[in-house]
Amino acid sequence: MTKINESSNENFDLNAAVQQWCELVLSSDSIKNKNIDELKDHLYCQIESFLEQGQSPQHAFKQAISKMGEVDILADEYSKNRTFLNKLCAFEYGTVGDKANQPTNVNSLIIQQSILWAAAMLATSLLIADNQQAMSVIFTVLLPLCLVNVISLKKNSATKEYRCIKNKLIKWFS
């Protein structure tokens, strides 16, 4: 997770730190731009109350963001309001927040992807069974794609894997 403004007390810029926090929150898919102003106002309210208690700006900021909760948990709460399609995408490719606890998700993703690929191969082979090139399509296109997919899943996070496959597909077909 990105560290927020760890500079020393004297040159601590409260507004810049708040801005940085907002950007970190926005990098999660679940919290949209229209919601950030509300969270920002909340953060400033909390900081002001800590400042009134005589705390330093840096300390007030740190306490306020810790009261706000982990960005991942915050995003999770917001994600309960997402649409079905968003949830489906998050299930398939994971959200930014998932990166933190990636190892636990990879295995289930590999199983999901394997099932999808198996289904795709089966469907394709049924469709083009009569065609003479059926075997070569399966062995030169679908199988390598499937392998690349599963291998890259192990190496990278779910979103990266998706991007990798997409790039490969673009390269092959251009």
């Binding site: 969270l39 909340h42 909390q46 309001n81």
Partner: peptide, 15 residues
């Protein structure tokens, strides 16, 4: 209340 939990609830009530 955890600070972050209120806003999604408010948004649901708004919906």
């Amino acid at each position: 209340w955890a600070d972050g939990m209120l806003y999604p609830i408010l948004h649901r009530l708004e919906k």
